[in-house]
Design a protein around this nucleic acid. Sequence first.
DNA 1: GCAATATTCAAAAACGTTTTTGGAGATCGG
DNA 2: CCGATCTCCAAAAACGTTTTTGAATATTGC
Lengths: 346, 346
Amino acid sequence: MGEPARRLGIRDVAEQTGLSVSTVSRALNGYSDVKLETRRKVEAAAEHLGYRANFAASSLRSKQTNIVTFMVSKPWTKFVDPFFLSLLDGVELALQAQGYALQIIMAREHETEFEIIRNSVERGRCDGLLFGRTRPEDERVEWLKARGFPFVTVGRTDKSDHDWVDVDHYRIGHMATERLIRLGHARVAHLATPLRYTYSNHALRGYRDALDAHGIGHDPALEIECYLSRKTGADAVTELITRGVDPTAIFCGNDVIALSAMEAMRQFGIRPGPDMALIGCDDIPVAAHVGMGLTTFRQDLDALGMLLGRMMVAKLGGDAGPHQQLIDAELILRGTDLPQSGGRAE
Amino acid sequence: MGEPARRLGIRDVAEQTGLSVSTVSRALNGYSDVKLETRRKVEAAAEHLGYRANFAASSLRSKQTNIVTFMVSKPWTKFVDPFFLSLLDGVELALQAQGYALQIIMAREHETEFEIIRNSVERGRCDGLLFGRTRPEDERVEWLKARGFPFVTVGRTDKSDHDWVDVDHYRIGHMATERLIRLGHARVAHLATPLRYTYSNHALRGYRDALDAHGIGHDPALEIECYLSRKTGADAVTELITRGVDPTAIFCGNDVIALSAMEAMRQFGIRPGPDMALIGCDDIPVAAHVGMGLTTFRQDLDALGMLLGRMMVAKLGGDAGPHQQLIDAELILRGTDLPQSGGRAE
DNA sequence: GCAATATTCAAAAACGTTTTTGGAGATCGG
DNA sequence: CCGATCTCCAAAAACGTTTTTGAATATTGC
């Protein structure tokens, strides 16, 4: 009868080499108390047999997975967000250099985010956790902190007493608004990204502070919160115009909102740029190609990702930290940040 | 002194309920031979204690992970390829509906692809494997087939005797070329995606067959293979023009190539569309915004992804298959597929 | 040359579950 | 009312590693 076709195990390597199972394990895992010659012999036998340690078994015994999980939240799964891939590319690079594997899981529903984290941590599926879209008061952050589980976030909380990397959206908001003011605009609107996220609040504060610094108070009618769908930038512009708020310039929290806003402007016969100045954020690929080109901010996401990965590796290596770092974005000047024209051509 | 702070285990749930460890396990895993009342009690206790089965242990004993791995290859990690995220979104949806988790790993170097697959399979890290960028003769496919490990690919091999989903690039190539011919173009060039991939060959065959069907032989000088970087579409156009090959229309294997080609055309004073017709493939977001809009093909990637996921679930459920399915792409008419103008305006 | 220390390896325990095996009590048919 | 069949659960084995423990041999210091 045919053999039961047992799976190849460390035992087979031991038999092949005439060594004990424990020695084989120690040789394969790079322990120092095994003679070089022995190690070579073991490695040769393992290679020859095609043996690899079973993941579940080794992770059960050693209590580590060598996996870092990045949880991507709904908005990132829904759009082709350049934020996503470039960032991950950097993270992966930094992790694999230290022997860690990057695993990506998706949180489709907003409510499942926490559940996914709990599951990953409590079931011991990974050694460290990465995620973004942090909120001013973030349940996930608090829970992980309380448990002492290693994690780094993209974005801060209000307390910010954990490890994070972040793009300086305060500075972005401030610079964008100031530039528009210097171009002669007195009524600058802000179409904000969802204010449940911390970074949106930072951008908003930057916007307001820039206005204040120039003696222009902020007008609630000029501030509209947009959600991450394709339409709300347009809706916001429509609202601004139909209500007669009449801004002459707009700072948008991201390019998707800006693009949507531009669409609405054209419907109203307003030329984005000449008739209404516009600055976005993110520099998505379309930004360079739409109309006369959208002026926006670019972030070095590769660098941000590598930073994120390196922080995680440092934490996992026992470095207590704190690990916190702010990244600057670069203003990309294109065609939509034009001076106040004094009214649109009829 | 202080308790050793042991990790919460199934034993604790057993003690809490006064049941045996085995019964708790069976209750939690939905076996039928446990009284409803007992099951409820166990679930309540587990919930109350916050217990979750350790992943490594359960996967070691049960020999399954409930994980399906999608390996993404280098080109997909490098660009913001819409192919990627939409596809994964669909896959994830189909998998999680059946209790499987989607895990994504990246193959940065081309050469590591195979190594990653071996590692995943031999170490028992997942129950099934998904990947794309298949080649006419694909080492990965052969190896997995020989091992009998469950996998589905995006794209076929020459033999195609495994499970796959694919976009019908033959039809795309045929339709695009035929459309250009009907518009009066006799010299239609083809900027192909890398021919090491199977789908590129299908597109090329479609292109050639359409020419043949109209009594136009294919001219090797009109066929240029482009690699997936931003520049080669431009390089190819430059080559066509400087060599005096003078096509009046181009069918591009994808939109990135087409966009790059358009850039080069403009440098030569050739207007994409009026002076040289152009059809791309993929309908990346920029395609709608560039110039007068790029005519291209759109694929329903969500559907493709869900199909992929459902096939994997079926396989894992024991359905022997074969599971093979071809998906049609939709022609999106925009501004670059114009009739032969008889020469460009000087 | 002898005790002390280093080096190298083997045996066995441990990791936390699921699965196998089997047995006690309940239910059923006649 | 008795044997047969079900229902529900407990005890123990098993999964394939890594880690702990300890012992044999080789090396060193004096």
